[in-house]
Design a protein around this nucleic acid. Structure first.
Lengths: 137, 137
DNA sequence: TTACAAATCGTAATCATTACGATATGATTG
DNA sequence: CAATCATATCGTAATGATTACGATTTGTAA
């Protein structure tokens, strides 16, 4: 998802476009993987000294609800990245730097048959390890 | 995994068999899905009034390291269940009650090719929703 | 430019989890 | 089966991410 697209989604759903929200989304647009709330706060701090936790977390949740961000739990912390809007896929996630790589395979189709009486609301398929860069470091 | 098997694993690795550990494992042996630390503490409390958090969490981590328990994050909390020792598989997990159902399909084999330079340390494939019982409730 | 709902602030509260120094207890050995 | 000692547990305080609140500011639409 692109920065512009994310901002439009906010507008369409009736949420205001503020400088802080733009900058938050800019941060994720420039990232190449999952980032923590703390990462984000460090990015925002120089521009907005003492930015409120309330603002950061409220907007992270908002972006998540609206579908702008997707989340995972890595090293015991929630982490966020811009949702990929192209075709459905999953990710390899580097444990070290959070970088993600797309995986085209999704096994859900063949599985739905096995779960007749179960209502499926979502699924997560993630592969963990080290990206080439973090291996050599 | 059966209760007896879990206790043996502890012994083999040189850890002591205590009444509290047995009861903790009994709790998970009787559960049919994921349970939180809080669930466990409530189960232990009547027998061991004021049982220490230290004891509970230290043993949960120990069981996890040893491979007796597997974990996931559900509703923002770590949850635990006895590791399944039969062939590799994944789970449907009920968001409401934590109950799990085995899923035989695992797509990892066809994926490893796509990740040549990446070192794969693990993967998670989980399906979320409501089990038949929680749907009717 | 006014008006008002929405957003942000500054900070305190929450809540799961972790950690610590003191004490108790399994398991091994003589 | 008593002594020993590493391991386990206790009671409680600390941590750290996240959530929440009343007061204030700011986008946005009329």
């Amino acid at each position: 998802m692109k920065l512009r697209e994310a901002i439009n989604q906010l507008k369409e759903k009736g949420y205001k476009t503020t400088a802080k929200r733009k900058d938050m989304l800019t941060f994720f647009a420039k990232a190449d993987g999952y980032r923590t709330a703390k990462d984000l706060i460090q990015f925002m701090e120089p521009t907005y000294k003492g930015i409120s936790f309330d603002t950061v977390y409220r907007n992270l949740h908002l972006f998540d609800e609206v579908g702008i961000l997707e989340t995972t739990v890595l090293n015991g912390e929630k982490q966020f990245q811009l949702t990929c809007t192209d075709d459905h896929h999953h990710h390899f996630i580097c444990k070290e730097c959070g970088k993600t790589k797309e995986i085209a395979v999704c096994p859900m189709d063949e599985i739905k048959n096995d779960l007749g009486n179960y209502s499926i609301e979502g699924h997560k398929f993630e592969i963990y390890g080290l990206c080439p860069m973090c291996q050599s470091a």
